[in-house]
Amino acid sequence: FEARLTQASLIKKILEAIKDLVTDANFDCSPEGLSLQAMDSSHVSLVSMVLHAQGFEMFRCQRAVSLGINLASLTKILKCAGNDDSITLRADEKGDKAEFVFESQSQDRLSEFELKLMDIDSEHLGIPDTKYSAIVEMPSSEYRRICSDLGVMGDTVRISVSKESVKFQVDGDIGKGSVCLHPSSVVDKPTEVVKISLEEPVDMIFSIRYLNYFAKAAPLSDTVTLSLSKDFPLQIEFKFGEQMGYLRYYLAPKID
């Protein structure tokens, strides 16, 4: 397996977005691309990442291989890569180590690292194709701000979506609060849009702590999509660009 990405910053940002939720994960390499599925230790949330082969500058994979990686160790290695460095990832048949090569844009600095891989016995879940009742697209910076603002007031947030608005409500020890967003009428920048597609209104409760973990993916994409259906896990998607891939989070709802 060998793959090369022009910008190391993408992998760095992906890692920042998952390392607080997941400690070890299998990076599954196949001819289609690089993917990862992992749950947090309490098994109520899941990360699903896909980087399509065509999003790489070079991608070669003869046989599917899983690279078991400790994310704290990978973070240490990726700290040695400049944001604009290219990154080449290599692994052989044995799958006991992975090689990382970082090259500066001017090609005058080359660094090489080897990471010991581990055997990870991870449980893969089958995520069904779902027709969600409500889909909300909003700026990822807005999502991050709401989660961080409301997170200081309580542990859970009630998300209510109607045709007119999406409302985030918190009810905590010191009091309560809410943030309500209306779909944008006048749009200056596409990245500032709030869009709501609704089959039926939903009203669900989620743990703010997890929503805040997911907000670490905000640097990956200008917009985030929240998909909700009653009594079903919330899906939060950050797309890397049209052809590149995505990072999705799933979170089980809190049920009375």
Binding site: M39, S42, V44, E123, L125, I205, P233, I255, D256
Partner: peptide, 14 residues
Amino acid sequence: CVQQQELKNYFGRK
């Protein structure tokens, strides 16, 4: 009482 179930109760193992 508010409960949060594990994801495998929704998605099932592959």
